[in-house]
Simulated assay, not measured.
Amino acid sequence: MDDVITTAVLRVVESMQENYGEQLTIDDLARTAMFSKFHFSRVFQRVTGLSPGRFLSAVRLREAKRLLISTSLTVTDISHLVGYSSVGTFSSRFTHSVGVSPSRYRGLDLLVPPPGGSTRGAAETGTGIGTLRGTVVSPIENRPVFAGLFPDRILEGWPVRYTILTRPGPYVLKDVPEGRWHLITQAAAAGQEDAINYPACGHDGLCIGRQGPITVSAGSTITLSDVVLRPMSVFDPPVLLALRQLMSAELSRR
């Protein structure tokens, strides 16, 4: 990747993390990158996998998650602090992205998995028709690993299918709906689970892996190459799904 592009996108991501409460526009972000607006949007999506606007929204919601569990600020105050003028809009987007409302997330120890067990997600898009299988390789040994299918390259909203492994190794996702999906895997070292609600810094205590897009068609059984987890970087979109709570609930259920 071109060093000039990498440096420019890094400046923008750092600006988002420092100024998430401001009403940043695409023009503001392009000026920070020192690119034209149209060129900036293209290279930002190429580096991060998301548009600048969607990445900024994810940064804001990640910060809202952190504030909800680390402060006693009201939901209204937090919505304003992270750049929302309407608490209703904030609550709606938070609920869609995280899986529960802001008020529920604040007191949440466990997130009840959707009906159907660990290989199903709540976002049903049709009858399951395919199977994905493969192996997760992680530098974090003997720790649980989440593997889920999402419409985009971000852990946002309920996965269409998911599983939670007790340690890195083989996985199977059954009854996968027809479509194009991104497989996203995540693991955290012991004591590093809260790192998911902070900006990533390349620390090997929080790792992520991706494959996709993967096209699933009727009756297909797809064996993927190994998914190799790596430390999350500043260019990885924030994790929005209440993943720690979901994993705790699933492992407790077992």
Results as ranks from 00 to 15, higher is better:
residue 98 V to G: 03
residue 98 V to L: 04
residue 99 G to V: 05
residue 100 V to G: 00
residue 100 V to W: 05
residue 101 S to P: 07
residue 102 P to G: 05
residue 102 P to T: 01
residue 102 P to K: 06
residue 103 S to R: 14
residue 104 R to Y: 04
residue 107 G to I: 05
residue 110 L to S: 00
residue 114 P to W: 10
residue 114 P to N: 02
residue 115 P to L: 02
residue 115 P to V: 02
residue 118 S to M: 08
residue 119 T to P: 04
residue 119 T to H: 07
residue 119 T to N: 15
residue 119 T to E: 14
residue 122 A to C: 14
residue 123 A to T: 14
residue 123 A to P: 03
residue 129 I to S: 09
residue 129 I to W: 00
residue 133 R to K: 15
residue 135 T to W: 11
residue 135 T to I: 13
residue 136 V to T: 10
residue 138 S to L: 11
residue 139 P to S: 08
residue 139 P to D: 07
residue 140 I to D: 05
residue 142 N to S: 14
residue 143 R to E: 11
residue 145 V to M: 03
residue 145 V to A: 02
residue 146 F to D: 09
residue 147 A to M: 05
residue 148 G to W: 12
residue 150 F to A: 03
residue 150 F to H: 11
residue 151 P to N: 12
residue 156 E to D: 12
residue 156 E to H: 03
residue 156 E to M: 08
residue 156 E to P: 02
residue 159 P to H: 07
residue 160 V to I: 13
residue 160 V to F: 01
residue 161 R to K: 09
residue 161 R to Y: 00
residue 162 Y to V: 06
residue 163 T to C: 07
residue 163 T to N: 04
residue 165 L to Q: 07
residue 166 T to W: 14
residue 166 T to N: 15
residue 169 G to K: 11
residue 169 G to Q: 05
residue 169 G to R: 10
residue 169 G to S: 06
residue 170 P to H: 11
residue 170 P to T: 09
residue 170 P to C: 09
residue 171 Y to I: 10
residue 172 V to E: 12
residue 172 V to P: 00
residue 173 L to W: 07
residue 174 K to M: 11
residue 175 D to M: 10
